[in-house]
């Protein structure tokens, strides 16, 4: 049976992981490769790397990171941040990434999703949506790191993304992000109900129960989180044990022991 996925997310700036410093038993907590190995060993099903590097000249450092991660770990990973052109996508895939996540660039140029899906296959094109609630059960798409409202309805945008050829959607609830009060179940479910591609919930994880809630009630196929894993507030093996006891199918522990 297809398992629900647990996905740690790492922000990378100039080739170094941002906010990873509380890790114990690891020599270089800012090294993306070391952290990726650690998450892999703990049973993460996938990883996401966001390149938050501001300048273009530092992008090549990130491509080296991608290649080194691919060399060290044998689980899938997605790369996002600063992806604007089909050539950008080509570069990260050639460096060893399995999927590419596109956010702001897709809003200004939806054709990039279509072109990339035709060229590389839908399976590696992820549409990442930052959404904010503007009225009850109504969400709009924000871009530029959540600073700019596009006025586009998030549910409609998700449907459009599927039509354009995205193979997966990451839905990040801006209101919930960093609050640790739980994922936005209503938003996640609203999108899961209207598309037939996998949905990754993002933003708001604080407790183990939050993961269970969004994977069940939110109908998400995967749950993404950053700080609860970075700061070791939640351990992935414990999380998976809990989900399993709650009748949620997860990749079993003996796979990585």
């Amino acid at each position: 049976m297809l398992a629900k996925r647990i996905i740690p997310c790492l922000d990378v700036d100039k080739g170094r992981v941002v906010k990873g410093r509380k890790f114990q038993n690891i020599q270089d907590v800012a090294d993306p490769v070391e952290l990726a190995k650690r998450y892999n060993e703990a049973g993460a099903d996938e990883l996401v790397f966001y390149d938050i590097t501001a300048s273009n000249e530092d992008r090549d450092i990130f491509l080296d990171v991608v290649e080194n991660v691919a060399r060290e770990i044998a689980i899938p990973f997605t790369v996002g941040g600063g992806i604007r052109t089909v050539e950008d996508i080509h570069k990260v895939l050639r460096s060893g990434a399995d999927k590419v996540s596109i956010n702001s660039a897709a809003v200004s140029n939806p054709e990039i999703i279509k072109k990339a899906a035709l060229k590389f296959g839908s399976q590696c094109i992820v549409l990442s949506i930052d959404a904010k609630e503007v009225a009850e059960n109504s969400w709009q798409v924000y871009i530029n790191g959540g600073r700019k409202n596009t006025g586009i309805d998030a549910i409609e945008w998700a449907k459009r993304g599927e039509q354009l050829g995205a193979g997966e959607i990451v839905i990040n609830a801006i209101d919930a992000d960093g609050e640790k009060d739980g994922y936005n179940i209503a938003l996640t479910k609203a999108i899961a109900d209207v598309v037939n591609i996998p949905i990754v919930a993002s933003g708001g994880a604080g407790t183990i129960q939050h993961f269970a809630d969004v994977l069940k009630e939110g109908a998400a196929d995967a749950a993404l989180a950053a700080s609860v894993f970075h700061y070791e507030e939640i351990s992935i093996p414990e999380l998976k044990d809990y989900l399993e006891s709650d009748a949620i199918t997860v990749r079993s522990e003996n796979e990585w022991k």
């Binding site: 049976m1 297809l2 629900k4 996925r5 839908s122 399976q123 193979g167 996998p198 196929d221 995967a222």
Partner: peptide
């Protein structure tokens, strides 16, 4: 088949 999500993406047994 469209009775399940397509692509089939993730860990399966």
């Amino acid at each position: 088949t469209d009775t399940v999500k397509v692509p089939h993406m993730g860990w399966n047994t």
